[in-house]
Each structure stands twice: as C-alpha cells, then as structure tokens.
Simulated scan of single mutants.
Amino acid sequence: MKRVINTFTFILLAVIGLQACNRTKNDENQKNTKPKVRVEQVYKQEVEQLYEYTATVQAEAVNNIAPTIPGRIDKIFVEVGDNVPKGKLLIQMDENNLLQAKSRLENLEATFKRLDELYKVGGISKSDWDAQKTNLDVARTAYEDLKKNTQLHSPISGVVSMRNYDAGDIYAGNPILQVQQIKPVKLLIHVSENMYTKVTKGMDVKVKVDVYGDEEFKGKVSLVYPTIDPRTHTFAVEITIQNSDAKIRPGMYARVTVNMGSENRILVPDGAIVKQQGSGERYVYVYKDGKVSYNRVVIGKIIDKSYELISGVENGDFVVTSGISRLNNGIEVELVK
C-alpha cells in the first residue's frame, strides 16, 4: 500500500513539474514573439485648406416704415409677405394737416406774388420782401415734409416682413411696417486673424443652408472688415448671395466654406491615429529599423478617411496602420504584408 502511495506521489509531482516547464516555455515564447504590424509610407501632398463657418442669413437692407410725426393711419395697402417694388405707396396717413398746410402755402404764394410785383417797382422795402420770402420758404418746406409723412413709399424693393398697425390706429412710435431687401442676402462670418492676408474682396465661397440639405449656393466676399477684434482675435467678413429666386430667407442657418488656398501636408490613415486616454492628444507609431516610436502629432482636418498632419511625422516615414494595440514606445516589431 505504501509503495502505491509513493508511486502516485511521484507521478503527480512529475505532472506538476512538466506543466510548470511548459508554462515557462510558453511565457518565454510569448516574450520572444514580436508584435506583427502593417505599415504605410506617407508623403506630403497638396491639400486644399477649406474652412467652414456658420452664420445666420441677413437681409441686404431693412427699412422701418413710419412717419416722423404722430398721426392717424388712414390706409395700409400691403400685407406681410407681399413683394413691393421701390417707390410703391405703402401707407396713407390722415390728410387733414396736409390739406391745411397746402391751403396756407397757396395763400402765401399768392401774397408773395403780389408783393414781388410791388418790390420790383419800389412799392415795398427789401426787408419786407425778405420776410415774406422766408415765410413762403418755411411754409413750402413744412408742406413737403407733411406730404412725405402722409404718403409713405417703400425706399427699397423687397418683401413686407412686419406689420404693427391697422387702418384707423394712431401711430405712436413702433414702425407701421418693415420691408426687407432679400435680393441679395448676406452673411457675416468671423475668421481667425491668421487668415487676414488670405481673405480678399471678390473671393468665391460655397454656401449651404440647412433647410436645403446639400444644395450649394454661390457667394462672394463683399466686404472684409479692416480691424481685428482684440477679444476674439477674429475679423468680420461679409458674404453676399445674389438669391435671384428669393429661395434663401433672412434668419435661416447657413454654413460657409472658404478655400484659403493649398498647403503641403502629410495625410495619415485614420486607423494610424492613437488618442491618448484622458487627454485630447493624438499619437502615431512610426516604424524605423525594426522598432516603433510613439510620436505625438498635431492633426488638422479630416479628409475622406485620412487625417491631415500639421506636425509630428516626416515626409516618407512609415506609420503603423494595424496591430497597434500591442505596441509600446521603442519595442521591436515584425512587419507583415
């Protein structure tokens, strides 16, 4: 019985020893196995520098229609949404004051005509003639002013966008109507100061309006503001869209793409970019002489399935595109096709 127990114990110890030996060999094999990676050589190439900005569509001009003096509104000839040409009669105010001013002007004109004849033959003095002429000029100015404030015309071609009163109301301060010129429309974007020398009046830009999806509209830089905002270090740029079909309306949300020229940049596949956990830093493994180095990179825009690199990788470098999960800085690797 004792012999059987000793034999069993010997066999058990032999099995345990064999397993330990195999485990040690496996560990050594794993340590000696180089991570297998695929690499891709990257080069500089011309990359368009496209920048996107957001803005809200604005009317080219906005006019508030109202008299300069209080009065009763007699008639309003348009409604919100009506298209109006320049010079169209929009509002008729009460005419009583105008009629009174007209009557007074006619009387003064008749009186001055008689006095002018007397003055020519020496019947009145120069001072009397001057006083009467002044009264006539004042009355004529007052009449013309009342006339402009009695019949209100549109100073621009556009669309009626607001109405605050009805016929019979007393005008008391708020505009009676608002007319907006929407052919063309404009956008105001704010561009980083380091682009100041690259933006010029007349530049073509592309515009997309959210409500119309991917449809593109042509715009032009119509104004580059001459100063930089010291708080934001940006400058304002005005974009004009002809909008001949009046499809784009003020208040719509738009995206403007501006081409700032091209630069020689390295493009790296998106699979080669490693994001550092807990920070916004990006890295790339660069392969050289059988080893990889962990290079911090500054990325630019995403172009298709690649990243534009501003710095961190040299022209002609080999970057690791697969097998990244097992890598550490400075370790040896095995290349696979």
Rank of each mutant, 00 (worst) to 15 (best):
E216I: 13
T227C: 05
T321Q: 00
G312D: 12
T227G: 01
V319N: 10
G271Y: 01
L18A: 15
K126P: 02
G87L: 08
N194E: 14
D229C: 05
A172Y: 11
I239M: 02
L187W: 05
D245G: 06
Y253T: 11
M252I: 06
V207C: 01
D304L: 11
K2F: 09
N328F: 09
T33Y: 02
P175W: 06
E40V: 02
D229N: 15
A246Q: 12
N32Y: 08
I65M: 06
A246V: 09
Q178C: 08
M203Q: 08
N107P: 03
G81Y: 09
E334W: 12
V37Q: 06
N97K: 08
K75T: 15
P250L: 09
Q132A: 14
V256K: 06
I303C: 00
D245I: 09
I124Q: 09
I182Y: 02
V258M: 10
A110W: 01
S157G: 13
L118F: 08
I69Y: 13
H233L: 09
V199I: 15
G71Y: 09
I176F: 12
V199E: 00
N96W: 10
N329A: 00
Q100W: 05
T24C: 10
S244R: 13
G323H: 03
L335M: 00
V313P: 07
V37A: 02
P155D: 01
V57W: 07
E216T: 12
Q92K: 15
V159H: 01
E46L: 15
T240L: 14
Y225D: 13
Q181F: 03
R249D: 06
P70N: 11
A172R: 13
M260C: 06
G300N: 01
I182V: 13
V80S: 06
A55V: 04
I182G: 00
N64Y: 14
E79T: 12
S157W: 08
N328P: 03
I303T: 03
V207M: 03
A66T: 12
N22F: 11
I65V: 06
F112N: 15
I273P: 07
E144Y: 06
V224Q: 07
Q276A: 10
V57P: 02
V258Y: 00
S244H: 12
Q180R: 14
A142P: 01
N29C: 07
G158N: 10
K31G: 01
V4Y: 06
Y165C: 03
A131R: 09
P155W: 02
V292I: 09
E28A: 14
N135P: 02
P269Q: 04
G219P: 08
G87E: 11
D145A: 05
T227E: 13
T200Y: 08
G17F: 13
V37E: 07
H153P: 01
V199T: 01
K218N: 12
F8D: 10
S161G: 08
V268L: 03
R231D: 15
G323F: 05
F235S: 06
K198I: 03
V205D: 03
K2L: 08
G168A: 04
V224E: 07
V80C: 05
E109S: 04
A142T: 12
T141M: 00
N22T: 11
N315E: 13
V284L: 04
Y143F: 07
S306K: 15
